[in-house]
Simulated assay, not measured.
Amino acid sequence: MVFVYQRTDSAFETANLSEIKELDKIVWIDILQPNEEEIKQIEALFNFKLPTKHDREEIELSSRYWEDSRSIKINSYFFVSFFFVENAKSHYNESVSFVLQDNILFTVRDSELQTFDMLSQMLLSYPKELYTGYDVFMQIFDIRIDRDADLLEYASRECDEIRKKLLWESGSHSVEVLRKISTLQEFTLKVRQSVFDKRRILTAMAKSPKLSKQIKEDLSIMMKDINSLIEFIAIDDNTLDNLQNLFLAQTSIEQNKIIKLFTVASVALMPPTLIASIYGMNFHFIPELSWGAGYHFSLVLMALSSAIPLIYFRKKKWL
């Protein structure tokens, strides 16, 4: 699918490829899962080659940002999340390609992304001062940065909930809590990859001679916002590490309690076992064999031998 956004005097309107008449009115062409025919039409009409899926997923720096005399080509990560972390498949980084050429922005992507839907609604409903593809590109990144900030705030709230659960709720050292901490760590890692990628792209763009002074000033503001997000990510990372250490400490305490219980039980039962073993020996000349109270004496002796270690442990506050 190809969505063409054209600027009129006071608003934006959409068009199909076949309806394009005046190229100078086009501001943004959004290309979603294009077929071969659509790719050929765009490449013939605008005289350039669209990035392939393989190009979008390249991780080398030279493949993430490329600028020549005619255009700027950018491959960026867009973090996708459904605002829950119970499943690691609920968040991932989606690659998106941007091509800026002749004041037109071309975006190439393989899946629906909320950022682009929001911008589309914004352009059609509340048109802003967006006249070129560079303006639209800056607006996309601005929306994306705000979205990443929301995701980090969500992760921070989740960390607070886990901390409260670990400190105040019994049975909080479950596998589910550890799984949630681990998934949140992966969640934050994916956001960090996306934010770092944005910083690298904007840093490279700031050096471009194709950008106006106003756009470079806007880039400077965005860079400050991104640096703030990076500091926020570092705080979340430290918090998650502390939560994991707290979880492991609580698990160790619970295990120590269980081991201590078994140890006390073993020590308490050792004297009665010894006494029972002595009186269970098959020797004819045992003094208590002919004693009428011998059996009751042995039972009392075993009870005392169990009670004395328990009393001693309690006085030592081991129980």
Rank of each mutant, 00 (worst) to 15 (best):
S212T: 11
V191D: 10
A249P: 00
F141R: 00
V191C: 13
L151A: 05
F247V: 02
K190V: 00
I140C: 09
Q250A: 12
K164H: 14
V175L: 04
L240C: 10
I221S: 10
S220H: 01
S194F: 14
I233D: 01
S212Y: 02
R192Q: 15
Q244E: 08
F196P: 00
L246M: 15
V191S: 07
L167I: 14
L184S: 07
E158T: 08
Q193E: 13
L246G: 15
Q214C: 03
Q214F: 01
T239M: 12
Q214T: 06
I226T: 05
V191W: 08
K164F: 04
D142C: 00
E231V: 06
T188I: 15
F247D: 09
F232R: 06
E217H: 11
N238I: 00
L248V: 10
Q193T: 06
Q193K: 15
Q244D: 00
L184G: 08
F187T: 07
N227V: 04
K224Y: 03
S182M: 09
K216M: 09
K207I: 01
N227T: 04
S212F: 02
K190E: 11
R163H: 11
R163N: 14
S174C: 07
L151T: 04
D135P: 07
K210Y: 07
S182F: 12
Q244H: 11
K224V: 03
F187S: 05
I233H: 12
L189D: 09
E176S: 06
I215N: 01
I221K: 13
I215R: 01
E176H: 03
W168A: 10
S208R: 13
N245T: 07
R147Y: 15
L152K: 06
D148I: 05
A249V: 00
S172Y: 03
S208F: 06
C159N: 13
N245K: 09
E169G: 01
F187D: 05
L167E: 09
L219P: 00
A234M: 02
E161S: 02
P209A: 12
R163C: 04
D197K: 12
I235Q: 11
I181N: 08
T203I: 02
K213M: 02
M138T: 05
S156F: 13
I140K: 05
K198Y: 14
V191A: 14
D160C: 03
E231T: 07
T188G: 03
W168I: 14
E158L: 11
R147K: 15
S194P: 14
D150I: 01
I140W: 02
F141E: 01
T251H: 08
E158G: 08
L189W: 02
L202F: 15
D197W: 12
T183E: 05
I233S: 06
Q185N: 08
F232S: 06
R144F: 12
D135M: 13
E161M: 01
F137T: 04
T188A: 15
K180T: 12
S172E: 07
R163A: 13
I201L: 13
E231H: 06
V191M: 11
K216W: 02
